[in-house]
Design a protein around this nucleic acid. Structure first.
Lengths: 177, 177
DNA sequence: AATCGTCAATATGATTTTCATAGTTACATA
DNA sequence: TATGTAACTATGAAAATCATATTGACGATT
């Protein structure tokens, strides 16, 4: 599919998938929505290689979906954040969540995140329906609370990742000699 | 990312993107939701090569998202349809539509599809809100009406595709001699 | 009874993308 | 001085995708 074709099509799906139509971009957006914006966190939680992550972040930045911000001047360190355009991908992530929980995840597994209706405090159904307000809650009124099991999974993944980094560094030093 | 990792993660996004986390799969689902189920239509409207399309359809079928049905015994011909699991990807497509229309498509371009609220007949806002019922319409209550301009685009694409097929066939015959 | 057209694919070899693994830079800390 | 940390970049191998051509079963046309 040529760029021309993509730019000129009236189909919004063509345009959307042109920017976020791949696994890594979506997982990066998920992670940024979770509040994790540092390179290593993104790498650990998405499972992308550093060069894949670097390439995707550059593209997402060029497309105005994320922005890079300095969080430390010395040493110079950056983190990534969603722009307004990126934040508005939340409904896409939520739709993938709903489908994944219902149609893909093994039965009986707990939901990774429980969603609540901020205006009334009650827990939302998987499709976003509020049983108290008796209507679909807009995503701007939702608040998520991650399940303990999922937090544990994430913590484990982060630890495993840094351990592997250390091992690799050790190996490098040994072979230096 | 290993299969093990994917199967065992609690994150529904990981599971979803494992099945439909690529451009072609999403465009195929879009096309099937439009009611186009034949191989050549899918190829023409998505722009995928025939072998890419073939590979993706096989995977989508293996994952229970589409099913292949015979629509002609002789000559033997097949078409593809969404299963219930596949139909429930509609909210994902709708979310990509909303985002694409608002954040990606050039300003002023008409929406490819206008959405209506089946229970009251009024046109929905881009985010799915019904101005008459004053609530978000669930996707099961929505009906889409493609814009003329988009239908034209699609028709043109289909014609161009079959023309190219004919040209290729001519070339083959000439070189046969 | 040849030839042509249709549809759902396959085959092939080149090109591009992604991967695993390792290394770099610039600073902080022990 | 050695060690650690964060955000990358480099390289060559492996895998995915591409453009292009071709197949096989049948029906319709000349």
């Amino acid at each position: 599919m040529s760029d021309q074709y993509e730019d000129q099509s009236l189909c919004p799906i063509v345009h959307s998938t042109g920017l976020v139509g791949d696994r890594w971009s979506i997982l990066i957006v998920r992670e940024l929505l979770m509040g994790q914006g540092r390179f290593q966190d993104l790498q650990a939680q998405t499972g992308a290689t550093s060069q894949m992550l670097s390439a995707r972040l550059k593209r997402l930045e060029a497309d105005g979906i994320v922005e890079r911000q300095t969080y430390s001047e010395k040493p110079l360190r950056y983190e990534y954040r969603l722009t307004a355009k990126g934040l508005h991908l939340m409904p896409v992530i939520l739709a993938l969540r709903t489908w994944g929980e219902r149609w893909v995840k093994p039965e009986g597994a707990p939901a990774a995140v429980r969603m609540f209706h901020r205006v009334c405090g009650s827990e939302l159904e998987l499709d976003g329906n509020c049983p108290v307000c008796r209507r679909l809650a807009p995503w701007t009124e939702m608040a998520g609370r991650p399940d303990e099991a999922w937090l544990t999974e994430r913590k484990t993944r982060a630890e495993t990742f840094t351990e592997n980094l250390k091992k690799a560094a050790c190996g490098a030093r040994e072979s230096d000699q």
